[in-house]
Computed example of a mutant assay.
Amino acid sequence: MAKNQSYYFSHDINASNDPKIAAMISELGMISYAWWWILIEKLAAADDYKLPLKKYTFVALDNELRMNNEQILTSVQQVFNKNQHVLEQNSMCSFCSFLLIYLLIHDYELLDCDDEYFWSPSLIRRFEFKKVKEETIREKRRLAGLKSAESRKAKKQNLTHVQQNLTHVQQNQLIKEKKRKENNIERDTRAREDENPLSMFDDDEVKNKPIYDLYMKAIGDVSPVIKDRLDDLVESYGKERVIVAINTTADNGGNSIKYVETVTAGNLKKEVQKDFGASKHNGNARNVSRKKEEVDWQAEYERVHGKG
């Protein structure tokens, strides 16, 4: 069995009142109480909570307990006198820790042993109880985890079942609600545009915004269609001609984009005629002069001499 991995073990707060412990302290002195708990710590860290009855064990314990022959023999002299046969039969009786453990086993019944190991029955019971308790807790946590997982799975299945079994009425209600929200958004958008019809053209980068603004003030609202037609006019005739056409339309009482388009095209035509009118007039004058210079000699002869 692997070594115990716990870093503590239970320790009764009234352990010193145990009759066996009290007898040990009374006969061996208070120092034996320290030896006892150091020994318990060593057992708690050992495999199966047991230490072997071997020479190396007692060599190590003498060092750990900081015991010497004079001290231990003085402390246990009267107690150990009745066990002289042990000294004669066991070669390890020269180790102070062996004498202490012998007394703890046979006189105070705090330890137990067999031919190979010695141990503390109380310590083993405590660790077995701790092990059972920890296993019980782990099992409870495992079952709680399984129960929680089953509960989540059931909720998920129920939710899926509910979603899959929505009635047509509920589905229609969802559709109607979606349409209502869309209508509300559209209505709010129209309301904002009614308050400020140019709000759709609030982008500072809109190059024809002054044209839209002039149209709004002089003629009427600017819809997306009117905006596109104004853009076409500006692109075809230039911004200055469109501004003139809008002002002319307003002065003449016009109230439509068609009117503005007609005026713009008419103004351009007038400009063309004006530009080319003078040159045309000069050309006609030259033609007249030339005709005058061309004399119909046959006609003149007939006029002077008469026909026949």
Rank of each mutant, 00 (worst) to 15 (best):
M1Q: 00
M1H: 08
M1L: 05
M1T: 09
K3W: 10
Q5E: 11
Y7P: 03
F9I: 13
D12V: 02
I13T: 08
N17Q: 12
I21M: 14
I21R: 10
A22L: 09
A23E: 09
A23K: 14
A23S: 10
A23C: 07
G29C: 06
G29H: 07
S32E: 01
Y33T: 07
W35C: 05
W35H: 14
I40Y: 01
E41T: 15
E41F: 12
L51R: 01
P52E: 09
Y56Q: 11
T57R: 01
T57H: 01
F58N: 03
V59T: 10
A60R: 13
E64G: 00
E64W: 01
E70Y: 14
I72D: 12
S75T: 06
Q78V: 13
V79N: 03
K82F: 00
N83G: 00
L87S: 08
E88S: 09
Q89V: 07
N90R: 14
L100N: 07
L100K: 02
I101N: 04
L111Y: 09
C113N: 13
D115M: 00
P121V: 07
E128P: 02
E128I: 09
K130F: 12
K131Y: 13
E134P: 07
E135W: 07
T136H: 05
G145E: 15
G145D: 11
L146N: 00
S148Y: 05
S148G: 09
A149Q: 13
A149T: 02
E150I: 03
K153T: 14
K155A: 14
K155Q: 15
K156Y: 08
L159N: 12
T160N: 10
H161G: 11
V162D: 08
Q163L: 15
Q163H: 02
T167Q: 10
H168D: 13
V169E: 12
Q170C: 04
Q173A: 12
Q173L: 15
I175N: 05
K178Q: 07
K181E: 09
N183F: 04
I185C: 03
I185M: 06
I185D: 11
D188I: 03
R192V: 07
E193Q: 13
E193S: 04
E195A: 11
E195G: 06
S199H: 07
M200C: 06
F201R: 09
D203L: 08
N208L: 10
Y212E: 03
D213P: 02
Y215T: 11
M216V: 14
K217M: 15
K217D: 15
I219Q: 04
V222R: 03
P224G: 08
K227C: 13
D228H: 12
V234R: 03
E235P: 00
I246F: 09
A250Y: 08
A250M: 06
D251N: 15
D251H: 14
N252C: 03
G253S: 10
N255R: 11
N255C: 13
S256N: 05
I257N: 13
I257H: 13
I257R: 15
Y259Q: 09
V260T: 14
E261Y: 13
T262G: 08
A265F: 05
K269F: 03
F276L: 14
G277S: 10
K280E: 06
K280Q: 03
H281A: 15
H281V: 10
N282I: 11
N282H: 09
N287A: 14
N287Y: 02
N287L: 13
V288H: 05
S289N: 02
K292L: 15
E293K: 09
Q298P: 01
Q298Y: 12
E300R: 10
E302I: 04
V304A: 05
G306R: 01
K307Y: 11
